[in-house]
Design a protein around this nucleic acid. Structure first.
Length: 242
DNA sequence: GCGACAG
DNA sequence: ATCTTGTCGC
């Protein structure tokens, strides 16, 4: 597994982080439809933490467009780069995620994030940020509506309703399983909302969450366990001068 | 000022 | 995110 370093100049305060978002948000591309489902290799990324020991593990799992079979995997471990602050999640997760993506032999054609893209207080969530930094098409599929409003979609899989911030549609509540709580899809970079939803449906043949995030979730947890070592292992063996 | 708040 | 046991269901 790769090692994730915190980049030079990475924001250390909330103020710096918000300024970085305001500077980078202008680079988001929203006028591309993006690759149609089934045409590109899709990567799922996710991160697991042990804040006590200051360890973070990220995983990138690439699936074949048509079969959803895993074609490549990579992980990266490092130190936690930022505390969890709603609206600033990207600063906590991205260094490790970028290291895992860099460890792949070839870049994917689409990245699916566990979280939001456009649906964000400053319209620059995790998926937008990762898309801009990598230049790759990216979407966000979140498990919760965050602070946004939405009407319940109809019961059948495929039904959707607008995810709203005031009167602005920032994403969609999309039902991926009949009568099961919807997921919350938003655009990241170089993909439009209809296509982001189409990809999400293509990635959910059997479960509420996309296969990409399910696989990435399992892999980053395993990587974290491995990095922490067996329970009861000594922290950092101190060299004793005697 | 208070509460809510992706992961 | 993470802490946590069993349990109901496909």
């Amino acid at each position: 597994m790769a090692t994730a370093e915190i980049p030079e100049g990475w924001p250390a305060t909330e103020r710096e982080a918000r300024a970085a978002q305001d500077a980078l948000r202008t680079r988001v591309v929203r006028d591309e439809a993006g690759p149609p489902p089934g045409t590109v290799r899709v990567a799922g990324v996710d991160v697991a933490y042990d804040d006590e020991r200051d360890v973070v593990a990220a995983a990138a799992v690439v699936l074949d467009a048509a079969t959803l079979e895993v074609v490549e995997e990579a992980t990266a471990v490092g130190r936690v780069a930022f505390p969890y602050v709603p609206g600033l999640l990207a600063f906590r997760e991205l260094p490790a995620v970028l290291a895992a993506l860099d460890a792949l032999a070839r870049p994917p054609g689409l990245i699916v994030c566990d979280g939001y893209g456009l649906a964000h207080p400053r319209r620059f969530g995790l998926a937008s940020h990762l898309g801009v930094l990598t230049g790759l098409p990216a979407i966000g599929v979140a498990k919760n509506p965050f602070t946004f409003a939405h009407a319940a979609p109809a019961a059948p899989r495929g039904s959707a309703s607008a995810l709203l911030d005031g009167g602005e549609e920032v994403g969609r509540a999309l039902r991926t399983r009949d009568a099961v709580k919807p997921v919350f899809v938003s655009v990241g970079h170089r993909v439009d909302l209809d296509n982001a939803c189409a990809h999400t449906l293509a990635l959910t043949p059997a479960h509420r969450l996309p296969e990409t995030t399910r696989k990435a979730d399992a892999l980053c947890r395993a990587a974290l366990r491995e990095a922490l070592g067996p329970p009861g292992a000594q922290p950092s063996p101190r060299p004793s001068a005697r």
